[in-house]
């Protein structure tokens, strides 16, 4: 590859830093059916989407599968991307929807009846014994009960408002707020002891 094409790839790269109203050649080229343009979009955004999937699903195999599903869905839906938000924002929203819908069915399949008061205890008990005095925040997030984890990741990590979270998850705004405080308390309890 020549210096000229390298510079070109740099100039035409996309990302959240790019203003949303800029024509993104890779997005329009991918929408026209070019899978190599789409692969460039994948390489640029995969880390963001994988981090989101990892935190919401709390399982690395599920996160990899969901990340792949997100990009396949994005390819199928690229025609409906109108360019009124940045591509990264559109992709992120698509990912949240797909992952939450997948998790809902997973949780329905495996739901156990656990009295709410026991969750704190259960979470504390599920901690690895030899974590030393420092447990990684991501590891602690993975141990949160699903409802509290979803709200915490969407609100505190990803910056969604409670009203948006309510719309995405189907819980009431008040429930979303309560789950957030619960999640923060649980995280501090397991990390700060």
């Amino acid at each position: 590859m020549t210096a000229a094409t390298l510079a070109l790839h740099h100039d035409t790269g996309t990302g959240e830093a790019t203003a949303p109203r800029t024509v993104d050649p890779d997005v329009s080229t991918a929408a026209a059916g070019d899978d190599r343009a789409f692969e460039r979009l994948y390489r640029l955004h995969v880390g963001r989407i994988h981090a989101l999937a990892l935190r919401l699903a709390a399982d690395s195999d599920d996160a990899e599968r969901l990340t792949q599903d997100v990009f396949v869905r994005a390819w199928e839906r690229l025609g409906s991307f109108r360019g009124d938000s940045a591509f990264g924002t559109w992709l992120h929203r698509l990912a949240v929807n797909l992952i939450l819908s997948d998790r809902r069915s997973a949780w329905r399949r495996t739901r156990r009846v656990v009295p709410k008061a026991d969750l704190e205890e259960e979470m504390a008990a599920s901690l690895p014994v030899n974590v030393g005095d420092r447990l990684d925040l991501d590891a602690a997030i993975a141990m949160l009960p699903p409802g509290a984890r979803t709200v915490f990741v969407l609100h505190d990590v990803e910056g969604y408002e409670h009203a948006e979270i309510a719309g995405l998850t189907g819980v009431a705004v008040g429930t979303s707020k309560a789950q957030l405080f619960r999640a923060r308390r649980l995280l501090r309890e397991v990390l700060d002891r």
Partner: peptide
């Protein structure tokens, strides 16, 4: 919690290349 959350990485690269599992699923185009 907020102080620690702000320090979280925004992106985490997958441990393996996931594209190989995506490309074959991209349909006719």
């Amino acid at each position: 919690v907020g102080e620690r959350t702000r320090a979280l990485p925004r992106a985490i690269a997958p441990a393996r290349d996931l594209w190989t599992g995506i490309a074959p699923r991209l349909g006719r185009r």
